[in-house]
């Protein structure tokens, strides 16, 4: 039988730096074994455990879209021993990976709908995956609005792509930072406030929210206030997932395990789970 503990071997193909302090780096990985690549099927919102022998594993949302072939993308914030070690990797190095784990954003239910994507800080990873996925079949969806906030302009990830998305006329991009700084021409203020200001009509609209816990906590009530029903709001939660298959117990909240029942939950589901946000 299969053994979920054994990581697949991945090769680092490209490393990008997302911020001036270089604490946020983006890694494009390819499969060392063809059979692993063929078996790997995923959807936006799922995550993987990246694995460094001797240091351990950490969960990361997949930032690439299944419609992008040839690589898997992860953005890694340097905070602990595993992420520290990942930051030492060079092109051509190998790294272990387990996944795809967890559920995904309700991409099928988004068809024929307006989509509101709300993100914060470096949690934009799986939202990038979703956005690319939607754009690669743009005609299946109606209006797409993105509200993306960061503490300061340096802390947006995927800045080059953001610039391209801004030029497109089929996505409405709203960027916001916490406090005004010189040379910033976009919005200023916290994400919930901007959501209240620019969110589209809730009619035929699904909202997908992913960001730091405090952003989620204050954004969800705003969406409710704007008239989004609980079934039309989805968010992605994070806990310290370890095993990734609902056994080790670390990500247990209520009767759910974030690693298998989530990380994506509708607001309707969240209402029945304690300790979420």
């Amino acid at each position: 039988m299969g053994n979920y503990c054994i990581p697949q071997q991945m090769k680092v193909e490209r490393i990008g730096t997302e911020d001036p302090t270089r604490t946020l780096r983006t890694y494009d990985l390819s499969f060392v074994n063809d059979s692993d690549r063929e078996a790997f099927k995923y959807l936006p919102g799922q995550f993987c455990e990246l694995s460094i022998p001797g240091k351990g594993e950490s969960p990361f949302g997949i930032a690439s879209s299944p419609t992008e072939e040839g690589f898997l993308r992860f953005t890694v914030n340097r905070t602990g021993s595993v992420t520290n070690e990942i930051h030492y990797l060079r092109n051509g190095d190998t790294i272990g990976m387990r996944g795809p784990l967890g559920n995904w954003y309700p991409v099928d239910d988004l068809k024929g709908m307006n989509v509101l994507i709300v993100g914060g800080g470096f949690a934009f990873t799986t939202l990038r995956s979703l956005l690319i996925y939607l754009m690669d079949a743009r005609e299946d969806y109606r209006d797409i609005t993105v509200i993306y906030g960061a503490r300061n302009p340096d802390l947006f990830i995927y800045k080059d792509e953001i610039a391209l998305w801004k030029q497109r006329d089929d996505i409405r991009m709203h960027l916001t930072i916490d406090k005004p700084v010189d040379g910033w021409n976009e919005k200023t203020g916290f994400v919930p406030t901007v959501v209240e200001e620019v969110a589209p009509d809730p009619e035929n609209t699904m909202a997908i929210v992913c960001g730091p816990p405090v952003m989620i906590k204050y954004t969800l009530p705003v969406l409710t206030k704007l008239g989004f029903s609980d079934e039309r709001i989805y968010t992605s939660l994070e806990r310290r997932m370890k095993c990734g298959i609902g056994k080790c117990g670390r990500c247990n909240i209520g009767s759910k395990y974030i690693c298998i029942d989530g990380p994506v939950f509708s607001m309707a589901e969240l209402k029945n789970i304690p300790e979420t946000v």
Binding site: C5, P53, K242, K247, C248, G249, R250
Partner: peptide, 22 residues
């Protein structure tokens, strides 16, 4: 009770991945 942690123990390129009761 069955919650566990997964930890690595090793030196250099050799080691073990272990699960321990948590």
């Amino acid at each position: 009770c069955h919650c566990y942690d997964i930890q690595d123990e090793g030196k250099g390129s050799r080691g073990k991945r272990i699960r321990v009761w948590d």
